[in-house]
Amino acid sequence: MVAQEEFTVDLNKPLVFQVGHLGERYQEWVHQPIVSKEGPIFFGNDVLEFLTRTKWYAVPLIWLPVVCWLLTTSLRMGHSLSDVALMASLGIFIWTLAEYILHRFLFHINTTSYWANTAHYLLHGCHHKHPMDGLRLVFPPAATAILCIPFWNLISLFTTPSTTPAVFGGGLLGYVMYDCTHYYLHHGQPLYNPAKHLKKYHLNHHFRIQNKGFGITSSLWDIICGTLPPEISAKKG
């Protein structure tokens, strides 16, 4: 009986509907990065392809005005400037935890089935396969808008109607800081700490130990949860 030939991804063709066929070999394939600024083709459809590409500056341009509106909403509802600043700081802190949880437990989930592989590639796998693709490094605004709904509902569970906007606004500001920082760590050349340290820390996650170092804007939750890369753990010791 002749063994069936293993599926091979053709990098010159649209990738999204190919990668699922890798099955159990997908995780190994997606964590072997191709270091090139040339982004891959995702879809044969031009509209879908366009929707997957986002300039980094779209993130602050679109979301910072929303942050300002949310913070001023809590101000208009009777809270002082210092109260709003405190609530926004809480929102940023909550975002740092969300950033860690999403990156560790969702973005790095192990998948083997066709549709799970496909979804993972769209969500985060493409970034590990093509880490220097500048047009697919930040979240598309439409995807962010959809994700805002469950985050708003979650925050509203433990806040009041007048504090929810400021806390959520702080979380959204944390997201903007995260996405801009993430882009800079890949495409900037920081000369001084903490940016220089963060770049080394994040590239270590991409090219050396991909199951450690899930923090982007800081290593706080990696320290707390025990997911610091070994050499960094040694330095901390």
Rank of each mutant, 00 (worst) to 15 (best):
L173K: 02
G170K: 07
A145R: 07
I155H: 01
V176R: 12
F168Y: 10
F151C: 08
I149M: 05
L157C: 13
I155Q: 01
I155Y: 01
G174A: 06
A145M: 13
P150D: 14
A166D: 06
W152L: 13
F151V: 14
P165L: 00
L157I: 13
T164D: 07
P161E: 12
W152R: 14
F151N: 04
L147F: 12
V176L: 06
F151P: 00
P165K: 08
P150N: 14
L157R: 14
G169P: 04
C148V: 00
P161R: 13
T160K: 11
L147G: 14
W152I: 13
A166L: 09
Y175T: 10
C148W: 12
I155M: 01
G170W: 06
L154V: 08
P161A: 11
P165A: 04
G170N: 03
C148N: 14
V176F: 08
L172R: 01
L157A: 12
G170F: 09
I149P: 07
T160M: 05
W152S: 12
L172I: 08
T160S: 09
L147M: 15
L147T: 10
I146A: 09
P161I: 13
S162C: 05
I146C: 05
G169S: 09
V167E: 00
L157P: 06
P161K: 14
C148M: 15
F158Y: 11
L173A: 10
L154N: 06
N153H: 08
S162D: 15
F151R: 07
S162R: 13
F158T: 11
T163G: 02
S162V: 15
A145S: 12
T163W: 01
P161V: 09
I149T: 09
G169R: 13
S156G: 09
C148Q: 15
W152C: 09
S162A: 14
L154A: 15
Y175W: 05
V176E: 07
G174M: 07
F168W: 08
F158E: 01
P150F: 15
V167Q: 03
F158P: 09
N153M: 10
C148I: 03
S156L: 07
P150E: 15
A166R: 02
I149C: 03
I149G: 04
S162T: 15
G169F: 10
N153F: 12
L154Y: 09
N153D: 05
W152K: 14
T159G: 03
I149R: 06
F158S: 08
G169W: 10
C148E: 14
A145L: 15
T164Y: 03
T159I: 05
